[in-house]
Simulated scan of single mutants.
Amino acid sequence: MKCDCKRKLICDTCRFRHPTVMHYDKWKKENKDKVSTGIQTNLITENQQRIQSHAGAGGQCTLGIIPVIVRVKHRKASCGIKTYAFMDPGSTVNFITKSLMDKLGVSGRKERRTLETMGKPLDIDTHILTGLEICSLDGSNPGELVTVFSKDEMPVSKSHIPTQADLKEWPHLHQVYLPQIEADIGMLIGNVTPGAYTPIEVVTGPDKNCPHAVKTGLGWIVWGIVRCSTDRNHEVCNFAVERDKDQMVVSKIVEAQNLEDLFRKYINTDFPEKTIDDKREPSLEDKKFEESVKKSILYSDGHYTINLPFRRKEIQLPNNSEVALARLNGIKKKFKLNQTFYEDYCKFMNDILSNGYAEEVPSS
Results as ranks from 00 to 15, higher is better:
1 M>R: 07
3 C>D: 13
4 D>M: 02
11 C>G: 01
14 C>P: 04
16 F>G: 10
18 H>V: 03
18 H>S: 08
21 V>I: 06
24 Y>N: 11
35 V>S: 12
38 G>K: 00
40 Q>T: 08
42 N>T: 03
44 I>Q: 04
47 N>E: 05
54 H>D: 11
55 A>P: 01
61 C>N: 10
61 C>M: 12
62 T>N: 07
63 L>D: 04
64 G>Y: 04
65 I>E: 02
67 P>D: 01
71 R>M: 15
72 V>A: 05
75 R>Y: 11
80 G>D: 02
83 T>K: 03
85 A>F: 06
94 N>H: 10
98 K>A: 12
100 L>P: 05
102 D>R: 10
104 L>M: 01
105 G>Y: 06
106 V>N: 00
108 G>R: 02
113 R>P: 06
114 T>Y: 08
114 T>H: 10
117 T>I: 15
122 L>H: 12
125 D>E: 15
127 H>F: 15
127 H>V: 12
131 G>C: 01
137 L>P: 04
137 L>Y: 06
139 G>D: 07
143 G>V: 08
145 L>T: 00
145 L>D: 00
146 V>D: 14
148 V>R: 03
149 F>H: 13
153 E>A: 10
154 M>S: 00
154 M>C: 05
156 V>E: 01
156 V>H: 00
162 P>A: 12
163 T>S: 14
165 A>E: 14
169 E>L: 09
170 W>A: 08
170 W>F: 14
172 H>T: 05
173 L>H: 01
174 H>M: 03
177 Y>K: 07
178 L>C: 02
183 A>L: 04
186 G>T: 04
190 G>E: 05
196 A>R: 03
207 D>P: 01
211 P>Q: 02
213 A>Q: 00
214 V>E: 05
217 G>V: 01
217 G>L: 02
224 G>C: 04
224 G>M: 03
225 I>Y: 04
229 S>P: 01
231 D>N: 12
232 R>Q: 14
232 R>H: 15
233 N>I: 11
235 E>I: 14
237 C>D: 14
242 E>A: 13
243 R>K: 09
248 M>C: 05
254 V>R: 15
255 E>D: 13
264 R>P: 03
265 K>Q: 15
266 Y>P: 00
267 I>F: 07
271 F>K: 09
273 E>F: 13
279 K>T: 15
280 R>T: 13
282 P>D: 03
297 I>W: 00
298 L>P: 00
299 Y>P: 02
300 S>V: 07
300 S>K: 07
303 H>K: 11
304 Y>W: 05
305 T>D: 00
310 F>I: 00
314 E>R: 10
315 I>V: 12
315 I>W: 09
319 N>R: 08
321 S>R: 10
321 S>F: 07
322 E>M: 03
322 E>V: 08
322 E>D: 12
325 L>T: 09
331 I>K: 13
333 K>C: 11
342 Y>I: 04
342 Y>C: 12
343 E>W: 11
344 D>L: 09
345 Y>E: 05
348 F>Y: 15
349 M>A: 11
350 N>R: 08
355 N>I: 03
361 V>T: 15
362 P>Y: 06
363 S>T: 14
